[in-house]
């Protein structure tokens, strides 16, 4: 069971090519960060994963199902996609109704639905907002509401688009904890992000994109310490990595404790 992208290219109906020859597989329970400059093709790439875009060449298989054979709504049972702007996805009168909406046609018992909704609220830290109108709660919390929708749905794959934008440290920590729990359950999380500290702290696998293509698919450490890839995809090393490079360390240091160890040995 996996998400397979097989030699996929995508062009918009007007002929503009947005992705070329993407090829990768995401296994159950894997955590992948997709990084790169705006316009590199990251968003187009993840839209291929949930069927919003259908490949013009190649195939995308979700647990063996070709996205070309299903509607986006059908694929959404497998691949959850949390958009960058929560306001595009929220429309119910209360946060609770928002979470329950996805189960409208579900065959699950009310008890089970309740259990899932409550758990999702707990994991995303939005319990205290459940009876409020979504637009009366802060923007950064609304983002967690859309995440909770898919946590409750229990999709095996979850795509997060810029989850850390506008989040404070509490929000970022909560995201990290949530991803740990989902991974523990064998669910995969795919994240588009510009936040390199977040990538280094939370993702073992990183896909770097530039110019519509994947230019590297490797561990965070190898990607951040490859200056060619960093330059081509227009990302940056996390601060500690930059400092380690400044002082001439070649141990591919990314984290504070590693640099501390290096410095105290000096």
């Amino acid at each position: 069971m996996s998400l397979e992208v097989k030699d996929v290219s995508f062009a918009y109906p007007n002929g503009y090519v947005a992705n070329e020859n993407l090829h990768f597989t995401i296994e159950k329970g894997e955590r992948v960060a997709i990084v790169g400059q705006n316009g590199a093709g990251k968003t187009t790439a993840v839209k291929l994963l949930n069927g919003l875009h259908k490949p013009t060449k190649g195939d995308v298989l979700v647990d063996g199902i070709n996205t070309k054979d299903k509607t986006v709504a059908q694929i959404s049972q497998y691949v959850g996609y949390v958009f960058q702007n929560p306001d595009d996805q929220i429309f119910n009168n209360t946060v609770k109704a928002e979470l329950e909406y996805s189960f409208k046609h579900s065959k699950l018992t009310d008890e089970e639905i309740n259990r899932r909704v409550e758990r999702a609220a707990e994991l995303t830290g939005i319990q205290q907002y459940m009876d409020m109108k979504p637009f009366d709660i802060p923007y950064s919390i609304r983002k967690f509401v859309t995440i909770a929708v898919f946590v409750a749905l229990d999709t095996p794959y979850l795509i997060l688009d810029e989850p850390t934008a506008g989040q404070d440290i509490n929000g970022i920590n909560r995201l990290a904890e949530l991803m740990d729990i989902l991974q523990g359950e064998g669910r995969s999380v795919i994240t588009i992000t510009h936040d390199m500290e977040f990538v280094a702290d939370n993702f073992s696998r990183v896909i770097a994109m530039a110019n519509k293509r994947i230019i590297a698919d490797d561990s965070a450490r190898n990607i951040f310490w490859n200056n060619d890839i960093v330059a081509e995809s227009n990302i940056s090393k996390p601060q500690i990595g930059e400092l380690a490079e400044d002082i001439g360390s070649d141990n591919k240091i990314l984290f504070r404790h590693e640099l501390l160890e290096y410095l105290t040995r000096l």
Partner: peptide, 19 residues
Amino acid sequence: DKTNVIMDSQRSRGIETEG
């Protein structure tokens, strides 16, 4: 433009818009 984005994000939530 906004309608297109919202349509996409709602389809991604499982709301059938094709048919």
